[in-house]
Design a protein around this nucleic acid. Structure first.
Lengths: 229, 229
DNA sequence: ATATAAGGTGTAATATTTACACTAAGTAAT
DNA sequence: ATTACTTAGTGTAAATATTACACCTTATAT
């Protein structure tokens, strides 16, 4: 059926920068490779796209195999296609970032055989990475830095109920700068997309903060007029 | 050499949304296909990525074959990979937009055999497009709408020397809304990246406007502190 | 009771954005 | 040369948004 399409020694893969936020730290999920090339190196989780899956499906599958999680927020952000980026042939790689809430039960359970283990590693303390994964990571981090200013992606890194301080911490660690507490709260609340749950944090050894949740319905209504977080 | 990499009936292509600006109109370059599938349909210019060219090189080659132009501003913006987007097999397509100055000598000279002809068509008056090219176009237009607000891409659509009114027209047609002349000029000049050439338009049948050029060096210096056009 | 640790709040100064309308300059036609 | 036409070019005031900044409150632990 595809005889008119030229065929090369080429294929395509997905690589994922999986961001997790925990206790004020931004981490990504890395695997230690079990196969050549780059055996024993740390790498971004990735895999070949299956014949009958779309790119988005493939990205979701890869993340699910690695973490057991599904319904994770993922966005495609760039495609890397230098001729020699893979030592064994032409592999074009479509990069996705994923954002998820760490802490609690979100254990990593690597199912695939190509990884020895998988670890959450602070983005400020990354090892050398296989292939062009350093560049893929940096591009992804840049992408979420830009995107967090205009789109409500910060909430994906937090539990459903969160405090304003936790939210501010997400912004601070991604933008890599301190923000003023009063100004942050004033602005964030002014958008009208945070719902005060009239409920307090539990189990903290100091004054408990008010919990909020992100109000997706309100956001969707306001969305036309482009918000700037 | 690539025996460890699985091989599928799959390949990858580049599709280009080539924007041109002329006399206040935003146009894109479309080709009329000369081959099945979608023979005789209008489509975005695109082609299969060669074995030994990077994605950026491939995009530049495709545009060169179609227009005879090189050194055109192009950016990759999204990759489309639905399983059935191509009726003859799995083809993942990496989309680029290009921006160039129309008018004058920029004739289109289609060299490739897969196109009968190529035309500049106003984005407000597009025909039905082959494959998923309607979606690829829309995504590309959205992309430049966002990008023109933060990056100096408008200048790519204008001749080297341009008037402020021409520049405002670029913003208006891409953002699809009227802007206030005085406010536009005040803001644009306040960035300090436009150089007054102390020279006037030629050959107009009314008061000639001052010509400006975009000062790349100044822009590069200021770039750290993120500008908002 | 006291110490500790984070939660939560307001205001004034500055900068940015918006809305708004007329005069100036050049060309073309009479 | 006058007139009509068309676009160039300009300023200000009001409203809004951003910034800088410090103390009291509340809950827990000792």
């Amino acid at each position: 059926m595809s005889e008119v399409l030229p065929k090369f020694n080429s294929t395509f893969s997905i690589d994922c920068v999986v961001f997790g936020f925990d206790e004020g730290e931004l981490k990504i999920l890395l695997i230690e490779r079990n196969q050549e090339p780059f055996k024993d190196w740390w790498a971004l989780p990735g895999n070949i796209v299956g014949e009958n899956e779309s790119l988005d499906q493939s990205a979701a599958r890869i993340l699910n195999e690695l973490t057991g999680l599904s319904n994770i927020y993922m966005e495609q952000y760039y495609t890397f296609g230098d001729v020699n980026r893979h030592p064994q042939g032409r592999v074009v790689s479509i990069a996705y970032y994923a954002l998820l809430r760490l802490g609690g039960d979100k254990a990593v359970k690597p199912i695939s055989t190509y990884a020895k283990k998988a670890n959450w590693i602070d983005v400020k303390d990354l090892p050398k990475l296989a292939f062009d994964h350093q560049k893929i990571f940096e591009t992804g981090l840049e992408k979420i830095k830009r995107r967090i200013k205009h789109q409500p992606i910060a909430f994906e890194l937090l539990p459903e109920k969160f405090t304003l301080t936790q939210l501010q911490n997400v912004y601070e660690v991604i933008l890599n700068k301190k923000l003023d507490k009063r100004n942050f709260r004033k602005k964030m609340l002014s958008f009208g997309v945070l719902k005060d749950l009239e409920e307090k944090q539990q189990g903290v050894s100091f004054r408990a903060a008010t919990l909020y949740k992100f109000d997706k319905r309100r956001y969707a209504k306001l969305f036309g007029k482009e918000i700037s977080f």
